[in-house]
């Protein structure tokens, strides 16, 4: 029987609010476990230093020390390297996902790093901060920020989490990568506006995934 294992990185575990939302979303068992990376040197090593260079450096002692103490605000990690490292430590015969507060980015074909909500491979890493930061916002948001004002970010985290987990599941089980239909949960959203347009699953994916997810929670809880 298929099940999914979701690791939540410490210290996010203590404040994580979506255990029940996720459990009731999937029709199969979801197991949660607290997770901690054990190699602060490696984490410091795979930090992104420049938006247009994929280059890793031997970390300074203070970077390793900050990793140890969890002082990682404002630090961005190479998502591919972090995922490889994570996969090495876990069983990937069933879908496994790490939910973290770390910011992750991947190096694109345009020669630049881009912040990501999710990085997928044999397992997946979802960045909760990435959910807030990665999707492009309306221009007004950036204008306010350039003057130092914190405008509230309007993202329904529970909805996006469900979308990302389902996207990984579809990829893991059916090798299905994203959906063209903008209302479909498997649509690869790049902006907050696109996320708003997602209402459920398209016909094709409803057939594929109807035995996997309970769709009612998504449509009933409109903001």
């Amino acid at each position: 029987m298929m099940h999914m294992k979701i690791y939540v990185e410490r210290p996010l575990w203590d404040s994580f609010q979506f255990f029940n939302t996720i459990r009731s979303f999937f029709k199969f068992d979801v197991e949660f476990e607290e997770y901690k990376f054990k190699d602060p040197h490696f984490l410091a090593y795979i930090r992104i230093r420049s938006p247009d260079k994929r280059e890793f450096y031997d970390p300074f002692p203070i970077e390793i020390e900050n990793e140890r103490r969890g002082l990682i605000k404002g630090v961005i990690y190479d998502g591919v390297e972090l995922l490889k490292h994570f996969c090495f430590n876990i069983d990937v015969s069933n879908p496994a996902v790490l939910i973290t507060e770390r910011l992750i980015a991947t190096f694109g074909e345009d020669g630049r790093y881009h912040l990501r909500m999710i990085v997928m491979g044999p397992a997946a890493i979802i960045s909760l901060k990435g959910v807030l930061y990665a999707p492009a916002k309306p221009l007004q948001y950036y204008l306010m920020h350039s003057f130092g004002f914190d405008d509230e970010i309007e993202v329904r985290v529970d909805k996006v989490l469900k979308m990302l987990l389902l996207q990984f599941y579809a990829y893991f089980k059916y090798n299905e990568i994203f959906c063209e239909k903008e209302e479909c949960m498997l649509h690869n959203c790049h902006t907050t506006e696109e996320i708003k347009k997602v209402t459920g699953l398209c016909e094709k994916h409803r057939k594929m995934l109807k035995n996997v997810v309970n769709l009612s929670p998504l449509s009933s809880k409109k903001k």
């Binding site: 230093r49 938006p51 002082l71 404002g74 961005i76 790093y113």
Partner: peptide, 26 residues
Amino acid sequence: LIKTRGHGSMWVEESEDAVINHTGEV
């Protein structure tokens, strides 16, 4: 004697925290 990383990474809100956290002896 050291290797600096250059700067200009993408903007994130918590960059000020990162500067404070990394202030130290290099």
